[in-house]
Nucleic acid binder design. Structure first.
Lengths: 231, 231
DNA sequence: TCCATTCTGGCATTGAGTGCTATAAAGTCA
DNA sequence: TGACTTTATAGCACTCAATGCCAGAATGGA
């Protein structure tokens, strides 16, 4: 697990890794991660992910191929945007929850909370999630990116039930929760459910009730919505 | 999802795809998928997956690089061996279960049943699973390979609870079940739990009870073993 | 022997990703 | 203004996975 980070971590020093030093020294970056991501997503959306080469992205942005790889470690990583920041938010949500709130409730609320987006972000997010859940190379890469997500959840579960985060219990809970979240995102990205929050919420209710086939109200779309689903 | 199959599916015609025709016509294959897999796994185990090139595998087997790619679509696929055959077994297990047996029980039994291995296979399996759950490139590829597994489970769940296999319910159940299975395998491959069946069994009991943090007996290793865990 | 079939090997090509180096652009300090 | 340091960029060379193409080897059948 050594290439999970987003920011380039190479010999010299990547542009985005500058921790807002006192003053801006040295040559200024000629572009931003966001700008590259926008151009790239546009190309991916129109021509397809595999059909778009890094050279094409670079020249669309107006930088060299080599510079592209200083902003993103790989072509795949572009689709993930600023994923790391959400990881911090997730951890905060989980660790900050009251101790007496049921574990699975905390988990559901945390995932819902970290996935609340403004109307302006939703279009781009749908493109991102659509790519991630359909393009084989990105489906594959998602496993690596989501490993970090799993670690955070496993830590949380281990605190609740005791034992090591590496143990079977926390690992199983974390990976199952990941599955639920991925299913919600994929369904939302595919058909035009305008209620991402509701999908996440329903998925986690199924998870928390052990997928009881007798509680049909949990399985039917448009079932009882949680209060938090009215974003 | 177009490159999920194991057997090479290229222009000419792959060796392993021959459906046992009447007689053996044409030049005979100079090796087998199994032979290649053995040599490759040996190299991966000793030198590491990334440090082993396809050229090295090919020359270890005594074939050309080009021929390697006629037996396996990619270097990653070698680690997966004959994964497709198990997919058929899983589907049979799920579809053949009595209708009145609880859904999650069927699922648990099916996964346990499709993962029963002889003592002779366990060493190689542990190497395989260790690689799959640690090497980033293989962790990534696992998402693509397991997509098929998810489809099978989602079909089964959809039959039980109604609705489309693409719907949120079946997708969530399938991906969560996959998470449970992966956690069990990873834990077994990492520390030397000699009881793969037991790990799978425990993971699915957690899943079926909604990860209830109050039922501590489910979370503790060595808790109440199911009858089927005595392999 | 001729022929169709099947597998193999070599060659060329594409595309991702990395290491190295020279250079451009910016601020700092004298 | 002119070194000097810092930071970012471009270009080149290289490795490696993967794919298409084609010639040729091995095999059985007519």
């Amino acid at each position: 697990m050594a290439d999970v980070d987003t920011g380039g971590t190479e010999g010299v020093g990547p542009p985005a890794a500058r921790p807002s030093a006192d003053v801006a020294r040295g040559r200024r970056p000629s572009t931003t991660r966001e700008h590259i991501a926008r151009q790239a997503l546009d190309l991916f959306d129109h021509r397809g992910f595999e059909a778009t080469t890094v050279d094409e992205i670079a020249s669309a942005v107006g930088i060299s191929r080599r510079t592209f790889f200083r902003y993103y470690d790989s072509k795949r990583d572009v689709v993930w945007g600023e994923f790391d920041a959400e990881m911090v938010r997730l951890r905060d949500q989980l660790m900050g929850a009251p101790r007496d709130e049921p574990m699975m409730d905390v988990l559901r609320r945390a995932v819902v909370a970290t996935n609340r987006f403004g109307a302006g972000e939703l279009d781009e997010l749908r493109i991102r999630m659509g790519l991630i859940s359909t393009v084989p190379a990105l489906v594959a890469h998602s496993a690596v990116r989501y490993a970090e997500w799993c670690d955070v959840v496993a830590d949380f579960v281990a605190r609740r039930v005791g034992g090591s985060p590496e143990g079977l219990g926390p690992q199983t809970a974390a990976r199952a929760a990941l599955g639920a979240a991925m299913a919600a995102f994929a369904c939302w990205a595919r058909h035009d459910s305008d209620d991402l929050t509701g999908e996440v919420d329903r998925a986690f209710r199924l998870l928390a009730t052990g997928f009881d086939e007798n509680r049909l109200e949990l399985w039917v779309a448009g079932g009882p919505q949680s209060s938090s689903s009215r974003a």
